[in-house]
Design a protein around this nucleic acid. Sequence first.
DNA 1: TAGAGCGCTGAATCTCGCC
DNA 2: AGGCGAGATTCAGCGCTCT
Lengths: 371, 371
Amino acid sequence: MTRHMPQKAIVQRTALELDTIHVGECVDILKSLPDKSVDLVFADPPYNLQLGGDLHRPDNSKVDAVDDEWDQFASFEAYDRFTREWMRECQRVLKDDGAIWVIGSYHNVFRLGVALQDLGFWVMNDVIWRKANPMPNFKGTRFTNAHETLIWATKAKGQKRYTFNYDALKAFNEDTQMRSDWAIPLCTGEERLKDEDGNKVHPTQKPESLLYRVLLACSKPGHVVLDPFFGTGTTGAAAKRLGRHFIGIERDETYAKHARERIARVQRANESDLATMGSKKAEPRVPFGALVEAGLLQPGDTLYCPKGQRTARVRADGSLVHGELTGSIHKVGAMLEQAPSCNGWTFWRFKTDAGFKPIDDLRARIRQQGH
Amino acid sequence: MTRHMPQKAIVQRTALELDTIHVGECVDILKSLPDKSVDLVFADPPYNLQLGGDLHRPDNSKVDAVDDEWDQFASFEAYDRFTREWMRECQRVLKDDGAIWVIGSYHNVFRLGVALQDLGFWVMNDVIWRKANPMPNFKGTRFTNAHETLIWATKAKGQKRYTFNYDALKAFNEDTQMRSDWAIPLCTGEERLKDEDGNKVHPTQKPESLLYRVLLACSKPGHVVLDPFFGTGTTGAAAKRLGRHFIGIERDETYAKHARERIARVQRANESDLATMGSKKAEPRVPFGALVEAGLLQPGDTLYCPKGQRTARVRADGSLVHGELTGSIHKVGAMLEQAPSCNGWTFWRFKTDAGFKPIDDLRARIRQQGH
DNA sequence: TAGAGCGCTGAATCTCGCC
DNA sequence: AGGCGAGATTCAGCGCTCT
């Protein structure tokens, strides 16, 4: 139908325009993006419920900032409608193995979390950005508000595949797994964008470190990261630095201008330096039988359990025998240990002149030959 | 009207029964409490965890899951109905200068926060309980879930009067303002209640120091603290220690029995004892990856061993590469030295105009930023 | 006796690809 | 789409035993 042509043309063009900032209303521009075209969404939505400026009802009428209870309810409701509208579009444009991160404070983050859950996203973690240097509460009326909350959620419940660079973060954290609380300083000093008059360009510019960690954890080089509230482009800067693509949406041209200049100054890291610690799961699979086939073990050889008191014999097809028990290295290990499962590669040892060594060493030798 | 007499009698009696545990359904008993009779509510409701099958540690031991009947809900809607019902009653029984604290994890805390806001409570802070020793993520699928979230809210918006012992907390916190993130260990060891068989009495007993800090912050001696999900009585124990009254509601008589015995053992503390519950500031460590994240080192930069003849390149995730070897600063250092372990912070140097310096200097710089 | 070492455990939405 | 099987996966603290 020809009347769809112009729209389609727009969709195509927008889909391809990576690494640029699209100036306009968030939802309008989101609607021009095709389904399942984005790997990751990072959203730092407005949350000034009281100030009125950023919050409009879907019909674009402005929410009155009145103090009475009824209006307070109305304003939460309006915020929820606004939230669900952009969030639903983000869900649509996410690939089936995609995920979303949102950030907020106690003013709005509960509403973001419930919206995610109600729309069918599946929360993986909430993550605390613990500010090293927060602004004190001058009046002494509350606790120093020293953190913000991020929520990481996959597109759908039961989603099998999603990106999480577990081993990269573990290396980052000196070999202990990364926790849900991150200590990161505020965006200040050199990093904070200032205009000609020396005033900060954006009131809530996020530290690039924060986005760096999000993208390092939940995306791969070459992935497309969408930020529907781009602001001064922290997401874009971190994406470029880490070799990811970005799609930015921002309705304020001044912010967009500063963001463009900022991102232009960012250096992308070299391809090889963007590599991170890989997971073992991603390594090529070597069946145990290949060790026998390659002559690294002979049919009839004996394998020993870690403590050495129990043994099994290797058969020609790569199965093991221990008395009546037969099966794979994993199965026989699990049965001997009466455990629900067992990694036979690390469980079983073979005898060498230098003592007992795990059969995993032999697998490593085979994998190395593959190079 | 005489037919109201019996009910009124119950109300009066219940209203006066302080420092006891009322066994029965939460909402039923709440309804028997008079309006505006309570200074503070602390609520640790079921989290609606939605766990799947069994979970085993890498050593094949089974994780003792929270699979109790009381944590099962048919849907988010059912959970929301349940939440709003008990929360509305809590709001009714709160004095006009009263406040509520609730605690939850990402499974339920967003729904708690939205319910509070929708019912007209006014959120003062969200507070993070940073666990010193959380259970790891055994399968390497997410971030270690290392915190829970508490929400502090007053009974109503615009409430002028509420209790916040700013100076007491500041003193408690070594003369700095108390922040919204609290580092507190899990409830383990001696403190954890065990039954005759040595099994834990309650699956989710909270540390007393957590309640201690809440009551110290938001109540006065003599105040009445209501806990509608009393469990094994951590709120009651902290209340007694601090000279507050409590009203406990618990539907499980076994929990209630243990709580009674526990609280009977508690001594009301004098000032000097209270100081010993003091806060130990647990500053989070700065992992090597944070240096790359913050731009103090770039992916691709070279590090040098003490003698300078061997080098490694820094990657985006803070891992190092030396030929075929990859890993954390510690691992690569150890492999190069053929040592069982290595402190990468003192081993590796980076080049400056003033010669080579240990990377530990960069960590010091990051730590300083936090002040 | 002090210290090393080992075992146990904690609110957990905890695999993935192939057939 | 469900079942099967390979094989990957943990941190800190407490309390006990052993030297």
